Simulated assay, not measured.
Amino acid sequence: MPPNDHVLLALPPTAASASVLRSLRSEGVTVSPVSDGIGVLDAIRSRDPALLVFDVELPGPDQAAVLAAVQSEVPHVPVIAVTPRERRAGLLGQLRGDRDDYLLRPFAVDELAARIRLRLRLGADVENTLLRLGELVVDTDLAEVTVDGQAVPLSPTEYALLMALLTAPGEVRSPERLASQVWSEPASVNLVQVYISYLRRKIGAERIRTVRGEGYVLEA
């Protein structure tokens, strides 16, 4: 993990949340807990976290307002939001497509840990840089993607998949490797294929070549 790997874990004060905290620490994640919306705002102002895990059902002030305040005050901090399925649709409008992510409750702790590591790794490797491959440009400081000078909005999963390919342009990435980088195990090969097709539609089908029996290559 990068030097600034401090994760702020904002979950309700329950036994399940305490178990998540212990499990993340046992996996080597540097994490501090808060249990209400006021605690989130106080913590981001004093601790400068590298990432925020944010439960949309925290006690305290309106959580939509808390999330908006976090995004305004520390726009460089990615958010992994935790939400029940019935609140997913409303949450998506608050997330900054290719910077933030979300998990549906209930979730596996190892999946959360994998998402955390992916977000921290992306932020550390490409902070304040422009990554270019031909006319494909990713501003990783702003989490913006352009193709031929035109902005291309990507979902969090599409962005993570693009970054997994872009870290090794011209090299074949197997579906299994992409699955472990983007979703954590056990994502299916079929799911990778579906998101490859989504990504092709947005950045251009010719930019992602299929190598039969091996995987996918990002090309200029």
Rank of each mutant, 00 (worst) to 15 (best):
V79P: 02
R88N: 10
Q94P: 03
E73I: 14
D42K: 12
E86M: 11
L92T: 03
D48P: 11
R88W: 02
L52Y: 01
I38D: 15
P75G: 01
V79F: 07
A69S: 15
A43H: 09
P78Q: 02
V79E: 14
D62V: 04
E86H: 13
V82F: 11
P61Q: 09
G39K: 14
G37E: 08
F54I: 14
V56E: 10
G39I: 14
L52R: 03
V66Q: 04
V40T: 03
V74A: 08
R85H: 13
A64R: 08
A69T: 15
L67D: 00
V82Y: 07
A68R: 10
A69H: 07
R45P: 00
E57D: 13
A65N: 05
R47F: 02
Q71T: 05
L51N: 05
I80E: 06
P84S: 00
A50V: 07
R88I: 05
V70D: 00
R88S: 10
L41F: 01
A89K: 00
G90I: 04
A81E: 11
R45D: 09
G39H: 12
I38A: 15
G93M: 06
V66M: 02
P49T: 01
S46E: 11
P84T: 00
V53L: 12
V70Y: 01
D62A: 13
R85F: 04
P75A: 07
E73H: 11
V56P: 05
V56T: 15
D36V: 10
V74T: 05
L91M: 09
L41A: 06
R87P: 08
S72W: 07
L91I: 08
S46F: 04
A69P: 01
Q63H: 09
G90F: 00
L95A: 02
P61G: 06
L67W: 04
G90H: 02
V82Q: 05
G93S: 08
A65K: 00
G90W: 00
L58W: 03
R87L: 15
